[in-house]
Computed example of a mutant assay.
Amino acid sequence: MATGLVSKFEGIYIALYSAYNDNGEVDRERAKKLARYYVSRGVKGLYVGGSSGEGILQSVEERKTMLEAVMEEVKGELTIIVHVGANSTRDSVELSKHAEQCGADAISAVPSIYYRMSEAAVEHHWQAMIDSTSLPFIIYNIPQTTGFNLSLKLLNKMAAQDKVIGVKMSGESTFDLQQYKEAGGEDFLVFNGPDEQFLAGRIMGADGGIGGTYGVMPELFCALNRLFERGRVQEAQTLQTKINGFITRLLGYPSLYGACKYILQLRGIESGQPRLPLLPVRPEHHEPLAELNQDIIAAIGSYAKVAEGAESHA
């Protein structure tokens, strides 16, 4: 099992959105501007090409283009974890090698989707990616979309390899998260996936979080993490509740990613519409989303000192 890597990778990671032009093609300049937006927000890094990044809806070449733009803009400033999971092992290995060539810090992958794979098939799929590069590998467990839930037996087998350094736990069970952390040990990374239970995940052993809604309120998740680290759990619970109110409102739109992209657009960060079949927001949603944006900005202002490392908030 890998050692000494928790401090390098722990923290808050934005699950980066896709960046398209007005014709729906991956846009390098918009991708760069989006990545740059997060440099000064206090986050540890970016998770590129995952669920929030619509990687499964993009071609291999589009995923490469998106990563290249991100690396050109923020390499060395943020830690970059690249999701390389694809339906075919061949594509996943190609994406893995490309991530290493670009200078990414780690790779990560879901199991192949659509087909219900056996543990042996999933292990073989992941192992091909692990063996194709010298990069650390982070398992991505999201059973509600893949239909595959990582067993402790397979986790233990995979984690025995030096290059397998952690798991992104996006399943809804904090019990499973705690079990993964206990099985992996102190130097095995566990990232909390469900944004709405970040605090619960941290309490049960997660070393940080990777999330999609972080993209419109990174400062709040950084503040939440700092409150937890300082043992101010009641204040952290109050902030998690506030964040969850924002998440509930975001989930009220045709697609979460469409709502988040529109909020960033209001802040001058264009990233295009989500790719169909993910739906964009409609004109009648613009006003309530503008109100939500203002409420988020107000909360960010209230917790700014905490996010920056100060001892209290307004």
Results as ranks from 00 to 15, higher is better:
residue 39 V to P: 00
residue 269 I to L: 07
residue 110 V to I: 11
residue 41 R to A: 06
residue 238 T to G: 05
residue 198 F to W: 02
residue 232 R to F: 11
residue 292 L to D: 06
residue 183 A to Q: 08
residue 224 L to D: 02
residue 2 A to C: 07
residue 45 G to F: 08
residue 233 V to A: 01
residue 176 D to K: 01
residue 226 R to F: 01
residue 148 F to I: 03
residue 91 D to Q: 11
residue 235 E to M: 08
residue 196 E to H: 12
residue 162 D to S: 14
residue 136 P to T: 06
residue 184 G to N: 09
residue 38 Y to L: 05
residue 96 S to Q: 04
residue 296 I to F: 04
residue 271 S to H: 10
residue 227 L to E: 08
residue 151 S to T: 15
residue 240 Q to G: 06
residue 275 R to T: 12
residue 72 E to M: 05
residue 159 A to I: 04
residue 278 L to W: 01
residue 235 E to V: 03
residue 184 G to C: 09
residue 12 I to D: 00
residue 263 I to W: 04
residue 196 E to L: 14
residue 54 E to Y: 10
residue 164 V to L: 05
residue 79 T to A: 10
residue 100 E to K: 03
residue 242 K to G: 08
residue 160 A to W: 07
residue 257 Y to V: 06
residue 62 E to G: 07
residue 253 Y to S: 04
residue 46 L to T: 13
residue 160 A to R: 13
residue 311 E to T: 14
residue 206 A to W: 03
residue 240 Q to A: 06
residue 235 E to S: 04
residue 188 F to C: 09
residue 12 I to H: 00
residue 255 S to Y: 11
residue 81 I to L: 03
residue 265 Q to R: 12
residue 117 M to T: 09
residue 304 A to I: 02
residue 48 V to I: 12
residue 92 S to V: 05
residue 33 K to R: 12
residue 193 G to Q: 05
residue 288 P to T: 12
residue 137 F to Q: 04
residue 35 A to F: 08
residue 217 M to E: 13
residue 70 V to W: 02
residue 103 G to E: 06
residue 37 Y to A: 06
residue 133 T to F: 04
residue 276 L to K: 12
residue 294 Q to E: 15
residue 109 A to E: 02
residue 84 V to Y: 02
residue 213 T to L: 07
residue 259 A to N: 01
residue 239 L to I: 11
residue 31 A to C: 14
residue 89 T to Q: 01
residue 146 T to A: 00
residue 130 I to V: 15
residue 229 E to F: 12
residue 162 D to M: 05
residue 144 Q to S: 13
residue 58 Q to I: 14
residue 295 D to C: 12
residue 96 S to K: 03
residue 131 D to G: 10
residue 284 E to A: 05
residue 27 D to G: 00
residue 50 G to K: 02
residue 248 T to P: 01
residue 221 F to R: 06
residue 99 A to N: 14
residue 183 A to E: 08
residue 251 L to W: 15
residue 235 E to T: 04
residue 187 D to W: 05
residue 157 K to E: 15
residue 67 L to I: 13
residue 17 Y to F: 15
residue 298 A to I: 12
residue 213 T to K: 01
residue 96 S to C: 15
residue 164 V to P: 03
residue 291 E to M: 07
residue 89 T to V: 14
residue 279 L to H: 13
residue 294 Q to V: 11
residue 16 L to D: 09
residue 166 G to F: 05
residue 119 E to S: 14
residue 310 A to V: 09
residue 181 K to Y: 09
residue 151 S to V: 08
residue 189 L to I: 15
residue 272 G to W: 00
residue 174 T to C: 08
residue 165 I to W: 00
residue 213 T to F: 14
residue 109 A to N: 02
residue 232 R to A: 12
residue 60 V to L: 14
residue 85 G to I: 00
residue 28 R to E: 15
residue 95 L to D: 00
residue 53 G to F: 10
residue 117 M to Q: 13
residue 302 S to M: 08
residue 182 E to H: 00
residue 114 Y to R: 06
residue 277 P to N: 11
residue 43 V to A: 04
residue 178 Q to E: 14
